[in-house]
Nucleic acid binder design. Sequence first.
RNA 1: GGGAGUUUAGCUCAGCUGGUAGAGCGCUACCCUUACAAGGUAGAUGCCGGGGGUUCGAGCCCCUCAACUCCCACCA
Length: 889
Amino acid sequence: MTTNTTELATTYSPKEVESKWYKSWEKGNYFKPKKGKANKPYCIIVPPPNVTGKLHAGHALDITTQDSLIRFKRMKGYETLFLPGLDHAGIATQSVVEKMVFEQEKKTRRDFKREEFVKKIWDWKEEYGNFILDQQRAMGASCDWDYLTFTLDPIPNQAVKKFFVDMYNQKMIYQSDYIVNWDPMLQSAISEAEVEHKDVQGNFYHIKYRIKDSESTLEVATTRPETLFGDTAVAVNPNDERYKHLIGKMAIIPICNREVPIIGDEHVDLEKGTGCLKVTPGHDFNDFEIGKRHKLPIINILNLDGTLNDHGMEFKGMSTKEARKKVAKKLEELEILLDTKNHMHPVGHGERSGVPIEPMISKQWFVNVTDMSKRAVEAVENGDMKFYPKEWENTYYSWLRNPKDWCVSRQLWWGHQIPVFYCDDCGHQWASEHNEIECSKCKSKKMHQDPDVLDTWFSSGLWPMSTLGWPNPEAMKEKKFDTFFPNSVLITGHDIIFFWVARMMMMSLQTQNKVPFSDTYIHAIVRDKLGRKMSKSLGNGIDPFDMIAQYGTDAFRFALAAGAGYNRGINLDPERIGGYRNFINKVWNAYRFIQPHLESSSAKITDLTKLDHHERWILAELNSTSKIMNESFEVYRYDDASAAIYSFVYDKYCSWFIELSKNILNGEASPVKSQRISVLKFVFKKMLALLHPITPFITEELWSHLKDDTEDLLIVQAYPEFDATLDFKTDQDQMNKFVEVVTGIRNLRASVNIKPKDEVSVELFTDNIDLITYFRKNLINFQELARVKELSVGSKELNRPNKSIMNVLTHTEIFLPLEGVIDLKEQVNRLEKELAKTKADYQKYESRMNNENFMKNAPEAVREEVKQGERDLKEKITSLEENLIQFKG
RNA sequence: GGGAGUUUAGCUCAGCUGGUAGAGCGCUACCCUUACAAGGUAGAUGCCGGGGGUUCGAGCCCCUCAACUCCCACCA
């Protein structure tokens, strides 16, 4: 079916078209990797969204940028794999389910057995987890869904165990008492990266401390008086004249009346507070460091839920917040609370739970990243992995160049359980990839596995490998690990450069000795039209589904692509998507225009020598557009690619080529006519191909109307590339001049309010002989495009018409002789204004010409350009001046 | 406190190794011209954040000031 004569609606409706084609592609296995003419693999792995997730604008941008590239490369003949996945997202998912269970059953997870509760999460995952995948499909993601991997699947689990056990045996994973960010709500340690610092209004409490065997006292300032039960020292700066004589004496902590040493430590800031610092190594990161330096004892005063334990004396059982008030009151009663000042200070909050985190000592698993991070830095330094845009290197480096060991244990139930086993009889501890049932040393059956699970990013870091089957040899073969690893490019937002990109780099270099991907493209963060982050509380989120429903997926994708370059933010305004919806509709209507003529077209252009000027021109323009699009996609400049094709469709194909074809198409059947139809069709098909990676649906739809019976779907057609034989420079130059003249005529018509229907006579004057011939040949086109009745074209030697309005281009003078009354004064005004402007321009060129240094230093090309400009403007000025004299006279 | 970034038309943004400012949207006027009113034609709009410097020449390079944004660190 090459033509379709059924009536087409004047507006394109995307809905049915989109689901229809997505099904066809999927059913026809078009998303599966196939060897093509490029004979190279190309693989992108989708950053796996959380199973709790719903598609948001950022995901939509992920999919658009990734899928456009995949489709581009597929058309270029690469063996493409677009690999989808889902992330179990430990904390996020567990808390969603915990909340739900609490609402429904008023129970916490601790009211269940571990297996029972984990089962609940799995149920929840089965029910809601795939929702986001359907949304990805709606976005047009051409993923091979057979590759779909969940981070808790057996293979990723195997990968996690293998990595852990290897590192454990190399002593690169170790267990240690450490001060961690304790989330009292989740009752788990969380990583530094999961802590969000928010400014909070608190108080500075100034407390009087007595000093043993001394009459003098110290004034200590703190925001957290309730932690004084855990204090094991008071610190002052050793250079502080006020206090340094006290170093070595003992201070007495109020309320509990414990004696602690007064120590000197450089960390203490002379300016801050009172210059005296209470040291609580168990509950403050800096104090922990001070404690280590001075070998201070550590006192833990908190229970796991964040309430005070026995050390808290009468305040036992209170939350820190409550205890803070009560302790302050007590201090007041004791008349040692000297002052209370309002104080804004940042407090760490759990990113997921939202509650203030409590620094606390606990036993955790750590990965020593010293060596891995070094290698990860080098891999970027030596170009094995490149960032686009390059500046993001800095973010990456700043994280990896001062690495802190990675706390990977989480006191959760949802995730990969740590593969470490303990013997309850002999106390032996070992790591194993297998489910152990007896102690590897004493064979006792009384043993247990470490109850903690691993940080989500632990499995994410292995993602480029585990999704391709590593470390299972059969799975690696089946999934073609050797073909698709390393991946081609990772595309994600800058907010997870260190969470994820850095970890993948480290873990890949560690396990494969290779970078996981050769490029990383960091796309912008999608914000609302005022540049604010999209958030639930602001209610300014843009729901991709709404956009798809309102404008169609293609329009939405185009809007995102048009905004995706090397920028940091896309401020997305739904109105702009509406603009691109109009563009999609334009493509639709361009098809509606050529559609009735298609029966008399031939499929291919065989003889380039038979092409006429306008046909050569549009092919040359198509050719330039192909060049830009190819180059832009290669370096992730979606914005440039979108702009190029937008302008081709609108400004070249629709505004000029279709308009210039109308008189031919309306005429009798002829070789000229059928050739023109062929070219219209040929170019249209190429245009669809160019556009396909960005707007897959409408292009596939129209392709189905235009394709030959022998042709496959557009999704696997060759992507148009630059072709030197179609580089018709002369035709582009001439056409540009033609466009200028037509615009000039229209401009004159508008300036004297000639009705669009009314015809006018036009006289053109130019000294360019080629142009004279060219314009004469284009009479019919001037008639069509500028409603010209009679056209005369002559050299500037000739006399100009008397009563007329005129316009001067650098190469041509345009005259519209007018019957009836012309407002001479207005004509003169207009020309004088134009003359003044031209003279000003001319002066810029002239002054450069007269500038010795410029002539001496500027490169040849620039000098030539200036000379040409000077000549053109001079000619224009002469024309204007001569004609002004005539008008005035 | 440390670091990075941004500042160009009313809005959102391009602007390659310095050659004299562009796009889309919006706006104005006129048009229902047989592909498209989700359209057509024509048009207006810029001390390229301020100041200084280098250069024949600066939106682009250097210094400085200002405003805004993000990241890291920080519970005295």
